[in-house]
Amino acid sequence: MTTYIVRRIGEGVIILIALSFVVFGSVHLTGDPARFLLPISAEHDESVYEAQKAAYGLDKPFIVQYWNFLIKAVRLDFGQSFTARRPVQEILLERIPATVHLAIAGTILAIGIGVPLGIISAVKRDTVLDRVCKIFAVFGMAAPQFWVAIMLIIVFAGYWGWLPAFGRGDMTGWFPSWSQIPNMLAHLVLPAFVLALAIIAAIMRLARSAMLEVLDSDYVKFAQVKGMSDRVVIWKHAARNALIPVITFGGISLAGLLNGSVVVEVVFAWPGVGLMLLEGVLSNNFPQVEGAIMVSGAAYILTALVVDILYGYADPRVRMN
């Protein structure tokens, strides 16, 4: 087990270094950052250019610059945002809680909706209910997130006016006060649901097939023969065993959600890392893009790592490979 964990952490570190190298390297490939940062008035003044280069450490060898970049990246120091005119670090610290909240809410919704639907469609196999669930799953995988988001806004925020359409309300930071909770939840419902939609379909399929397998096993049949009620058999005996792989999958998709949220954050004007990333992309704001991508990438690698290690504990076959 220890070798497995060590090897898996090693892989994670290598991918992270590769990512940082690509992010850092692409700035150098696409142009000279020192010239890019030059004020227009000094465009042809070579002495200003040289001074600028020295000030940003850009006159040093590539490897030294890369090393400096890495050291700073660990502290989330990516320099000044060109547009916001303040440190990227500050923006990141504001935005990370919003994205994490959204991802957690999305995972909870995905499991909370996907698992019961999967169990129901397994138990009521080949009935109308099963078919409706299947159609829902097919739709969830095919519909573009941005479109579903807009349709939900039109119906729930525009037409009925039940839920807020944009933003996070008056929430900032990690922890809401008691009075902020209802407002926070209202703002979370629509974006979290859209984020969850594609995963609901996958979780449902997984739960359905796992459940069908378990329902066919001897101990479930024995429990039925003993005369226990259907409800106890299904929810206590069968579901508990069927759900282990499903929960693991939920963990993996949490990692995906942390990043899949770019589109959702944009449509709902959700002040998270994904929105920050797109703002950076559209305004050529390199420090901001670097910061957002490095943070999302690291979060993704870390979550996948934790899930893999837990999975290794649960299933010996994984760590043997």
């Binding site: 690509v22 992010v23 692409s26 995906g256 990043n259 899949g260 770019v262 589109v263 990333l277 797109l278 992309v281 893009v289 991508i293 999302s296 990438g297 993704y300």
Partner: peptide
């Protein structure tokens, strides 16, 4: 996720 790579 492909959208991250594409954005980069």
């Amino acid at each position: 996720p492909s959208i991250l790579v594409a954005l980069l």
